[in-house]
Design a binder for these strands. Sequence first.
DNA 1: CGCTATGTTGATCCATATCAATAAGTGTGG
DNA 2: CCACACTTATTGATATGGATCAACATAGCG
Lengths: 236, 236
Amino acid sequence: MRLRPPESDFQNIRSLDLFTEIADQHFDVLMRGAYVQNFPPQIELIAEGDTCDFLHVVLSGSVDLFSSWNGRETSMATVRPVSTFILAATVKDAPYLMSARTLEKSRIVLVPSKDVRSVFDIDPGFARAVVTELAQCYRSVVKNTKDLKLRTSLERLANYILRQQRRAGGATTFELQFEKRRLASFLGMTPENLSRAFKGLQPYGVRVEGSQFVILSQSDLERFAKPNPLIDDYST
Amino acid sequence: MRLRPPESDFQNIRSLDLFTEIADQHFDVLMRGAYVQNFPPQIELIAEGDTCDFLHVVLSGSVDLFSSWNGRETSMATVRPVSTFILAATVKDAPYLMSARTLEKSRIVLVPSKDVRSVFDIDPGFARAVVTELAQCYRSVVKNTKDLKLRTSLERLANYILRQQRRAGGATTFELQFEKRRLASFLGMTPENLSRAFKGLQPYGVRVEGSQFVILSQSDLERFAKPNPLIDDYST
DNA sequence: CGCTATGTTGATCCATATCAATAAGTGTGG
DNA sequence: CCACACTTATTGATATGGATCAACATAGCG
């Protein structure tokens, strides 16, 4: 069942960096063509290789971006509310490079790609926002590549934990938001190896109980992880 | 010695996708503020972490983009004429995530970042080109991540060879344009491992003599490499 | 309350890194 | 133009990080 997004969703969408500078009438154009839909968990929203018909906005829930080749699969990123995904395919009008599936019950807005492109061409504020967002995405992937190529799996895990801690407001205790197997895949390792890596971080003051992470010694962990803003900072 | 770009360089720069749709007067604005410079090999042009003052355009020669962490270093990409680099840092006005050094004698144009941003704001054709270029860059890095996470080093090498072959126009014989150690670093492996990987591809009809690659059996190599447009195609 | 998926642990294997030695280029200055 | 120095490439021996296989534990979930 497809429905136009109700007024209540508008606010959430408009609050995105991508839409704050857009002219009201142009935002209306995008919303008029848009659909909102609630998906159950584990639904494949898009498949890599598909043509790109919609820009997706996650309003609630979460979405996993993943890729496959030759029978192997890897998790590329997790999208959390409120944010968009596959903007690059949208602006290039090119096939998706990644597949997407819901991790939990999720509310997703689908904005027709051609509307996005046509509004881009007439709205300078939106154009500016698109380019900023894309640059941000690009930089995130570059950081991820550096993480993968310059660090061992133990170092990646250590820095991942520190990043999550910051996202959780700096608390010494916080929850993993999804399965460990997905974390393993995202970090480029096997579930077995991840289990052992948790043990490997115990000497640096990391305790893992179920989905709960506890940092017993911030300084020990940081001394081992050597976090770097040019790899680990989300903002810049 | 810094010099304004002469007329002869203008044509080359303007032929870039990034500058084909820009208005003449706006292109002039960019060129008026720009400098052109000839660099010897092995000169570090920018260092990761530096603030981004210039968009760089390679007119001739070649440039290596690389990153470091904790005493390790990895090659991220090679930039060949005529193309730009660090566009993302330029539009975001954020620190470079990668360092750049000349691989050979190179002619580079430096366009002040703030000029790029201000022209972006007033020239829709240029804005469109910037967003297309950034989307392209983003997709390239995503493909590279898939390559790294989904393939073994031998598979990466096999597909790299096939990509280079296509760049060389499909010839069965072609030259590696730089050192093997850099290729190893780019592919995320050690030089020793690369040497052995060359041997490992012999059964699939690959011969390496010095910097020359010979593909004796296209079909065997492709059967092993399993190239995929969503990882290996440059265009989309 | 079982059933099924996820996570852990142990044993083993394999790919890749590291260390060491040698060979082959490459460039420089006499 | 050659000799020397220095970097890069190759090869061999070994070490190790991480994958795989297998068994078991645990936790969600219907």
